[in-house]
Design a protein around this nucleic acid. Structure first.
Lengths: 390, 390
DNA sequence: CTGTTAGCGCCTTCAT
DNA sequence: ATGAAGGCGCTAACAG
């Protein structure tokens, strides 16, 4: 309910320049630092060479360290490098063939917890392999997605990892396939991460997690505890993610010889507010279920609120499970039983596959990885009460 | 309590190569796509020129579009470009002076919600200005921080934005200052984001938010409601962030002519678990306060759990406020009154300052921006009960 | 309108 | 052990 009223307290303050003028700063910050205050262009190899009174080749060799150089010359060069604060120009180096291929990461929005986790994994594994990591966001806009992907390709990314490119739009899929092909032709590679492969013909590596299996496991858990009427809270269609979870739900029911009851599918979105509203409406006439399987932890959070408002205790009256093992899962009271998704590892794996670092790797052609999920048992489930509440 | 037991459900599956061999795929993905299946090097301008039977300069001009070219030739060139799937080499272009300077982003961990928000802001503003965005994580390791910063500098970043470089270590600060100077000398710039300037002599731009003011505002709010004994839940020292919030708390008290009572400072960390434990212990002998100011929303979440376990209702018995306006603030029941921090805008501003895009900008030297915070009123506060509970 | 030429900064043979 | 020279792919003068 209460959409937060907002009270402005302090306002934006484009601050004045620092109060006191920078003091002369008695000791130089770094002994060897010269006073190069002018905003100038970076030092070049040639300048270093001149300063050290050697040829450019020698400087290069000293820096590369893969060739014998007289100790005395080396010292001189090194000092000049220090003195001039020389740093090699990456572009020139790349041009010469010594490129450090970049790993490009394209994602909808970093504020999404799952996305952020994958991104963290990607970045870690990328730098672990000496690659730097370029990032671009799309806000879920398919057109922007293509633009960004192309930009990444142009930037010479050695691999492009796409998170959440699961748009159903067939046109977009074709474009994506074209980009993937183009990338492949340039010796790079497209990796789809965290979403099932959209098209079997797309020349892309796919890294996904056992979405359906996780749903199956957590619903089975409820069934084993004795629950027979389990609400599915979330969209039955639309996102492939939700569809997969529904599939797992249904398979679990089938394994227990229980019929699938469409009236136990509530629908709605993946978010908290929607879940809360939908469930609250569903609860007006009392509850005809003993457990709720929410498609996401956020939805579960909403469900918890709705249940509580309806006077139902969790897990005493109704059991509740979520999906994703988000931070909020442990913030809830009771702490939420949920399905853990190895997002960070997903990102790591994506990079490994993209770089061809997988042991026992298959052909250089398309590959695929499926990471396991597992149930995290917390406090939101219990056997169903003797008598149905409500 | 219940540290989640973990049940492994499905395991890691290095999947076999795709089942059916790629079908001939009746229609080519893209009409103009030629079959370049070999993982080769990207097409060069020269190849395009040869294919179109023109000089390299002409191709360049067609692509740049800033020079008249005969329509017929233009067509030929364009087709060749399509045909060969040509993409300009960024490095070569950069070398020639047409560099699109990169914005580098250095941060401890993307999984942190606040960090992710800042990062999102940085990325948005960077691409909005035609810059690509390089990212590197440090895990809070100061040495790694320096390494990453230097790497960014070497990568030719046009600006480097550092999130959370608030380590107290003076040695690190000096190193940082040196890097900042080096960056400045190369025509780039270091922007410290979301943390107060560590050293007044550091040649860096600083973007921060009104940390102390937010604390002052939210505590004032409690005081206005009639609360007189307000618990400060969080570290009193150590992090500058917490220190600033404590300062705001104290100033609010002072403005109400109330003494600062050290026994109302609970201590602990910024996280949820610690807050919960500390507060629970504090509550054994009953509560001697009517409100709690938690330094972070996570801490507030922990506090809520502890209060509930102690049989105290929020806000009926005890009011609770947090800081940061995290996602979880609305997930809690009751929804948490907290201080909103404009993290995304912080990131945006950092980029704008870094790129010198601020209107009415000051000298090119150090600048500083202070963004306002504001209280978000939700449901976790109320006037204190008549009689002190407990 | 188009082609030729000369580098951007670096690395790497090839000569000394 | 060091220097000179050529070229990575591209663009911007300068000719035609």
């Amino acid at each position: 309910m209460s959409i937060a009223p907002v009270r402005s307290v302090s306002s934006v303050t484009p601050a004045p320049p620092r109060g006191r003028p920078r003091p002369p700063s008695g000791n130089a910050v770094t002994p060897t630092r010269t006073t190069r205050t002018t905003t100038s262009k970076p030092t070049t190899l040639r300048q270093v060479a001149r300063a050290a009174d050697v040829s450019m080749a020698t400087v290069s060799r000293v820096l590369a360290g893969n060739y014998p150089v007289a100790p005395r010359t080396r010292q001189r060069v090194l000092r000049a490098v220090q003195e001039l604060d020389y740093v090699a120009n990456t572009h020139a180096r790349a041009l010469r063939g010594h490129a450090t291929p970049t790993v490009a990461l394209v994602l909808p929005d970093l504020r999404d917890e799952a996305v952020a986790r994958i991104a963290q994994g990607v970045e870690e594994e990328a730098t672990r392999n000496g690659r730097s990591c370029l990032i671009g966001t799309t806000r879920g806009d398919t057109e922007r997605e293509r633009t960004v992907l192309r930009a990444m390709r142009q930037n010479g990314a050695g691999a492009v990892i796409l998170i959440g490119g699961g748009a159903q739009d067939p046109v977009h899929q074709e474009e994506l396939a074209a980009i993937a092909a183009s990338l492949a032709a340039a010796g790079s590679r497209l990796v789809l991460c965290g979403r099932p492969a959209p098209d079997d013909a797309m020349p892309a590596t796919v890294v996904e997690y056992d979405n359906e299996g996780g749903a199956y496991a957590v619903v089975s858990r409820l069934l084993v505890q004795g629950h027979r009427r389990i609400l599915f809270l979330g969209p039955a269609t639309g996102s492939t993610t939700a569809a997969g979870r529904l599939a797992g739900y249904r398979r679990a029911l089938a394994d227990f010889d229980l019929p699938f009851r469409p009236e136990l599918v509530v629908g709605g979105g993946l978010g908290r507010a929607d879940a809360r509203d939908r469930l609250a409406r569903r609860l007006v006439g009392g509850s005809d279920f003993t457990a709720v399987f929410a498609v996401t932890d956020n939805a579960a959070s909403g469900a918890l609120a709705a249940l509580r408002e309806a006077g139902l205790r969790v897990p005493d009256d109704v059991s509740l499970v979520g999906y994703g093992d988000a931070e909020c899962a442990t913030d809830l009271l009771p702490q939420l039983t949920t399905v853990h998704v190895p997002y960070v590892e997903l990102g790591r794996t994506a990079v490994r596959l993209a770089l061809g670092l997988t042991e026992g790797s298959v052909s250089a052609a398309d590959q695929r990885a499926l990471l396991g999920t597992h149930v995290v048992l917390r406090d939101s489930t219990a056997p169903p009460p003797r008598r149905r509440p409500g």
